[in-house]
């Protein structure tokens, strides 16, 4: 079977990986072509992702299906493609925002509440600033660019996989059995109701701060998270703005991100600004992911701010749709989705 995957971001690469895995398990013949319009894989909105595999934290503001599908990502990123670190995640709030922490704790599960000594043991650099924290011990985090590089490496060594970068799939002949369209926001002309939600992030470097796990700091208007990266940097993200500007980081957003980082730890004031970035998250009106089948073309899209969290679950289902003609109402059935949402 010849399959073309369009788009080599988190969605496309995990989809390609799962197609390969299912084909191997079922002893199927597969020729896989991964088409990416950029010169290299992994330069779309996944490039700016936080990389938190935090299904239970996300339950605070999403529908239950996100946590359910997202829980599958823990196994994927820690065992199947082991690029994530499973050190849990922390949620904190400044004293003035303690009602936010209370509200967060009421809407989530799988956490324990830490007092200052317990926090000091886990994350010594935070204990000076926070009395209490919520600790989601089972969650994980990864570095998105490293994770995508690893997927590319794993795929590229396979004899039946070809990468075609710098190529527009629209220019290619329709000579494949299946197309998996993982273009994200670029697929909007094909997908009614797909919109972009802008996110901005920055990367800071500080030798004065040590964090071992992502920290979310709650705030009524601009909550942020800080994810430690392997190279001694910290990713600070991310704004959520209902517009579709891709590459335009505003001063106000930077002020918010920096202020929050500074509130988390004063030493961030002297951190080096390594990078700022901005892109849009492909999202449907309910901010839930979709597998949409149109004949022999399957769209995997709408991952919103959950690219790495939801890709594995969507990818494994996509592979089952292609090889087994499977049907997954929770991501394929509009009526089911509407019924559940109501």
């Amino acid at each position: 079977m010849r399959i073309r995957v369009i788009g080599a971001g988190a969605a496309g690469l995990t989809a390609a990986f799962e197609l390969l895995r299912v084909a191997r398990a079922q002893n199927r013949d597969l020729a896989l072509e991964i088409v990416e319009k950029s010169a290299k894989p992994g330069l779309g909105c996944s490039y700016f992702a936080g990389g938190m595999i935090a299904p239970w934290c996300e339950a605070e503001s999403t529908e239950p299906i996100v946590a359910r599908l997202g829980a599958e990502a823990l196994e994927f990123w820690t065992q199947i493609v082991p690029v994530a670190q499973r050190r849990g995640s922390l949620v904190v709030a400044r004293p003035r925002d303690r009602s936010e922490l209370l509200q967060f704790s009421r809407r989530t599960s799988h956490f324990v509440t830490l007092d200052r000594p317990a926090l000091a043991e886990l994350e010594p650099d935070l204990a000076g600033n926070f009395e209490t924290a919520l600790y989601f011990a089972e969650e994980a985090h990864l570095a998105p660019r490293d994770a995508m590089a690893e997927l590319v490496r794993l795929l590229a060594v396979e004899p039946n996989v070809v990468f075609r970068c710098g190529v527009d799939a629209a220019d290619l002949p329709d000579n494949v059995d299946w197309t998996l369209d993982c273009r994200g926001f670029a697929a909007r002309p094909d997908l009614a109701g797909l919109r972009g939600v802008k996110g901005e992030m920055m990367v800071l470097r500080s030798a004065d701060i040590r964090l071992s796990r992502p920290v979310r700091m709650l705030h009524p208007r601009h909550p942020v998270y800080i994810v430690p990266r392997p190279d001694g940097t910290f990713m600070v993200g991310a704004t959520m703005i209902e517009n579709e500007e891709r590459a335009r980081v505003t001063a106000r957003s930077l002020v918010e991100l920096v202020n929050s980082a500074f509130a988390l730890h004063p030493a961030f004031a002297e951190a080096e600004v390594v990078e700022t970035g901005s892109d849009v998250r492909p999202s449907f009106a309910d901010n839930l992911p979709r597998l949409l089948r149109k004949g022999r073309r399957l769209y995997l899209n709408g991952l919103y701010r959950h690219g790495f969290l939801l890709s594995p679950a969507l990818a494994s289902r996509a592979a089952r749709v292609v090889f087994d003609d499977a049907y997954f109402p929770e991501v394929m059935d509009e009526t089911e989705r509407q019924r559940r949402a109501s």
Binding site: R195, G196, K198, I241, N243, E244, R248, A285
Partner: peptide, 16 residues
């Protein structure tokens, strides 16, 4: 104010 971005970038949401 913020949704407009550098121009009319909020059009998708405003359309909704």
């Amino acid at each position: 104010r913020r949704e407009a971005g550098g121009g009319r970038a909020g059009e998708s949401f405003w359309g909704l």
